[in-house]
Design a protein around this nucleic acid. Structure first.
Length: 885
RNA sequence: GGGAACUUAGCUCAGGGGUUUAGAGCGCCUGCCUUACAAGCAGGAGGUCGGUGGUUCGAUUCCACCAGUUCCCACCA
């Protein structure tokens, strides 16, 4: 074995072996299933830190439950990402001077498939380098024929059930992608704009003043509205005012919707370009003037402004208003402006005919699921936002004016009659039955929102829509855990829950684990434009996948955003190296071990570590089951580094007896198993080296012995004794360093913990090279005394606070100056102890405390008092001895 | 405007009504190339637990208010 762990070769080799032997393939069998569906990344996407986090966490779960004996099935896949992919293909074509529309639908789709095949494999290959244990045989793409059919069938069913309808509504329009968007695809951002106060003159020369941030839409005004109860404007209701810059007169109307406290209390009504105005327009049967082209340029209805962009028109109109005396004043104004999630274009409210899903009945299903606890959200605080969203959800606009995606299964007869069917044949048959010419049908041009296929994912990957009774579906569904980011709680998670109940009558998963967003050290979201997102592949090359996994898991605890710092990968790499070298030591021992009975000390150390391991396993299992990966990683890190390497292996030096070594190796194996979910590659490698197992076997398929828990089997006395010994050894070393003691001559103790004495003696002798001796009374004259206090057993395991206090004396030569330093430090310690004693006494003299505090607490305080008095007595004694010496 | 969360060591965070007067990792300081590992070993320094009140025998921990930070939702032009 090399003295440095080189992950690159090891990882590449095992990745290949795992894949070739299809190690993570799952088939239904008699074991309990543990199913995870991977949130499918965009097919043409590139791996970023969010994917690393998301998939590492899923892999930890998958590998853990596999070790626990479950039949783990982790279904990977990719999403066709309708709008994102189409935007990329359009851009590529444009770069070649080709216009999408000119190319035509068929040819465009060919281009899109070409692009998908070129780029679609990349992210999958990148994911594989992470070492994730998905079942690649089950890989699915949302446009695969069975999944395509699933979308068609679900659409038809919802349509037949009256939950899908087509209608003319005001929707969010993306003027760059030229498509409708759902509410969730609109991101609101605070923007600085100008609030213009514009005069709308009446025939008699009076005028109303209206505040607006969108003066360019003045040209589309069809009314001015005031609140019906607004005293100021009573006499205006029913009169007419002229729309500035035009010669149109529009009525002044009264509508409850107007907020009399905003601006001047007068609202210009522009039904074509504002959702609120649209409602008012409907109520008052106002005409609609649309002044924008789909690209959000002003159109012919905008007169002289036609051809300008929204922004240009705004500038021009403001200056024209001013020039013509319509502009009363302007003031800066901050408000939020909707942007397209994909293109970042400012969305334009637009009236158009779209397909919608009626959400209310579906939302009720999803609400019930979390209220009854059938579906659990972790962390729980997301419950509030989840509920709020579902309780206020509006209908879901699912049609997109795009080509890349699932084409809406609706066919129109020349007279507009709609036939919704899963296939063209069925639509034709239906048309024929209704007396139409089947050949006259024309399919809807639009495709469906990407999320309309995603919400079926847990169902469709198991071919529910092909055959609801198929073996896989019955075995794997519902799945257990969904791991995803809170950003898509509404987009995806809530809708999957709806779809699961609606189509299959069952929840899609039991638990949703929502992890944070990966940010940089300055808390900025990682993004390409900021250039603050490290390339995961680069990280994997530099540190190894295990190190990157460990690094990202150790970044932050559950639920919080995590601040990624590359030094964590380095820490992970160092940890790999540490682990690697600990196994290297075990290997060296194999050659050197002799056939002798093990020493009492080694036997005791072995027993002790066995208990540590049992505690570790119980706690790691509990933590992973509770989705506390960060804590599990930290615990393993510390126990392996401190207890296993620094104490246990050191204790077994120079070499344990052969019979003991075998037992030590099986402990080491258990450590590897516990660590395996976090760091699959190195543990696989070390496991094979340890076991000499054939390539086809794998630590991931080994079985973890069941945890003994932290019950009676644990020898707390031994753990406490060793902990006390460790603390004593550290303290004595500290004194040696602090006072530059080259050699400790003797170590004595007044051992009133008689039971611990043999353990203390063995450990101190091994680590300090001196035999611990018992003395009956404190030595006089110059000696170092140290009070060792230990809370008993490593603190990271338990709340148990068994406090032990032990006093040791060291006989050593010190130069005079050092004795003075010692006196000084002891005096400081004495003062400290005295003030503490004061506090304790006061507390114990307080009658309220004695009366009201629970007896255990009073007992504890008394023990503290006694110990502190003892410490103080010793300090005084020692100071006297030093002064006289 | 509504909702949620956070504020503990230089940084990132655990913790929890009484834990010998607060824990970890990283960073920092000191001494070591000790034959598994310098990607290492052995030690160390560093915090009046955001502020103010309240509840309590006792609060960093519970409550209220204040200040600051962050996120989500919302058509107020």
């Amino acid at each position: 074995m090399e003295s440095r762990y080189a992950p690159q070769g090891v990882e590449a080799r095992w990745r290949k072996v795992w894949e070739e032997h299809r190690l993570y393939r799952s088939q239904p069998d008699e074991r309990a299933a543990y199913t995870i569906v991977m949130p499918p990344p965009n097919v043409t996407g590139v791996l970023h830190m969010g994917h690393v986090l998301n998939n590492t966490l899923q892999d930890i779960i998958a590998r853990f439950y596999r070790l626990k004996g479950y039949n783990v099935c982790w279904v990977p896949g990719t999403d066709h990402a309708s709008i994102a992919t189409e935007a990329k293909v359009v851009a590529r074509l444009r770069a070649q001077g080709i216009d999408k529309r000119a190319l035509g639908r068929e040819a465009f789709l060919e281009e899109a498939w070409k692009w998908t095949h070129e780029h679609g494999g990349i992210i999958v290959e990148q994911l594989k380098t992470l070492g994730i244990s998905a079942d690649w045989d089950r890989f699915r793409f949302t446009l695969d024929p069975p999944l395509y059919r699933a979308v068609m069938r679900s659409f038809v069913r919802l349509y037949q059930d009256g939950l899908i309808y087509r209608g003319k509504r005001m929707i969010h329009w993306d003027p760059v992608a030229l498509t409708a968007l759902s509410d969730e695809e609109v991101i609101y951002k605070e923007r600085e704009s100008i609030l213009c106060y514009v005069r709308y003159p009446a025939e008699n020369g009076e005028y109303l003043v209206i505040a607006t941030v969108r003066p360019e839409t003045i040209l589309a005004d069809v009314a001015v509205a005031v609140h019906p109860a607004d005293e100021r404007y009573q006499h205006w209701i029913g009169r007419r005012v002229r729309v500035p810059l035009t010669d149109r007169f529009v009525p002044v109307i009264a509508d409850e919707k107007v907020d009399p406290t905003f601006g001047t209390g007068c609202l210009k009504v522009t039904p074509a370009h504002d959702p609120g105005d649209y409602e008012i327009g409907e109520r008052h049967r106002l005409p609609i003037i649309d002044i924008f082209t789909p690209e959000a340029y002003l159109n012919e209805h905008a007169g002289v402004y036609a051809g300008l962009t929204r922004e240009e028109a705004r500038q021009r109109i403001i200056s024209d208003l001013e020039r013509l005396g319509f502009l009363e004043k302007t003031e800066p104004y901050r408000h939020s402006v909707g942007h397209s999630e994909r293109t970042d274009a400012v969305v334009e409210p637009r009236i158009s005919e779209q397909w919608f899903v009626k959400m209310k009945p579906l939302a009720d299903l999803a609400l019930r699921a979390v209220k009854t606890g059938e579906v659990r959200l972790i962390p729980e605080r997301f419950l509030a936002t989840y509920r709020h969203w579902l309780e206020n959800v509006k209908d879901w606009c699912i049609s997109r004016q795009l080509w890349w995606g699932h084409r809406i299964p609706a066919w129109y007869a020349p007279d507009g009659q709609v036939f919704v069917a899963a296939t063209e044949e069925e639509a034709r048959a239906a048309a024929k039955a209704a007396g139409y010419d089947p050949n006259s049908l024309r399919q809807d041009e639009d495709v469906l929102d990407t999320w309309f296929s995603s919400w079926l994912w847990p169902l469709s990957v198991f071919d529910f829509f092909e055959d609801p009774n198929n073996v896989d579906f019955r075995y794997y569904y519902p799945t257990q855990t969904l791991v995803t980011a809170p950003e898509i709680l509404f987009f995806w998670v809530a809708r999957m829950i709806m779809a699961g109940y609606y189509f299959a009558g069952k929840k899609p998963f039991s638990t949703v684990y929502l992890h944070g967003i990966v940010r940089d050290k300055q808390r900025r979201k990682m993004s390409k434009s900021l250039g603050n997102s490290p390339d995961p592949l680069e990280l994997i090359r530099n540190y190894g996948a295990d190190a990157v996994r460990m690094g990202i898991v150790m970044s932050a605890p559950a639920g919080n955003d995590l601040l990624f710092d590359e030094t964590l990968c380095e820490q992970g790499k160092n940890f790999c190296n540490k682990l690697w070298n600990s196994f290297r030591l075990i290997h060296l021992w194999r050659e050197k071990a002799v056939d002798e009975p093990p020493s009492d000390f080694h036997l005791e150390a072995y027993q002790w570590f066995e208990h540590i391991l049992n505690l570790l396993q119980a706690e790691v299992e509990q933590l992973i089951q509770a989705y506390r990966f960060y804590e599990a990683a930290h615990l393993l890190y510390r126990v392996i580094w401190e207890q296993f390497c620094s104490w246990y292996l050191e204790a077994l030096k120079p070499v344990p007896a052969r019979s003991l070594l075998e037992k030590v190796e099986s402990q080491a194996e258990r450590l590897l198993q516990l660590l395996h979910p976090l760091m699959p590659y190195i543990t696989e490698e070390l496991w094979h080296q340890l076991k000499g197992a054939p390539e086809t076997s794998s630590i991931s398929l080994s079985s973890l012995p069941s945890s003994t828990g932290s019950g009676k089997e644990i020898d707390w006395n031994l753990l406490d004794a060793v902990q006390l010994a460790q603390t004593a050894i550290s303290q004595i070393r500290r004194l040696q360093q602090a006072f530059s003691i080259s050699e400790v001559q003797e170590i004595y103790t007044l051992a009133y913990q008689v039971a611990f004495f043999p353990t203390l003696r063995r450990w101190i002798e091994h680590f300090l090279g001196k035999k611990l001796e018992k003395v009956s009374s404190s030595p006089t004259g110059r000696s170092l005394r140290v009070v060792v206090r230990s809370t008993g057993a490593p603190s990271y395991f338990l709340e148990r606070a068994v406090l032990h206090q032990e006093i040791f004396f060291l006989q050593a030569e010190l130069p005079n100056q050092k004795w003075e330093e010692l006196v000084h430090s002891l005096q400081k310690e004495k003062l400290h102890a005295e003030s503490f004693l004061e506090k304790l006494r006061a507390k114990l003299l307080n009658p309220d405390f004695i009366q009201k505090a629970p007896p255990e607490v009073i007992e504890k305080e008394r023990k503290k008092l006694k110990d502190t008095e003892e410490r103080l007595r010793l300090l005084t004694e020692q100071l006297e001895a030093l002064n006289s010496g």
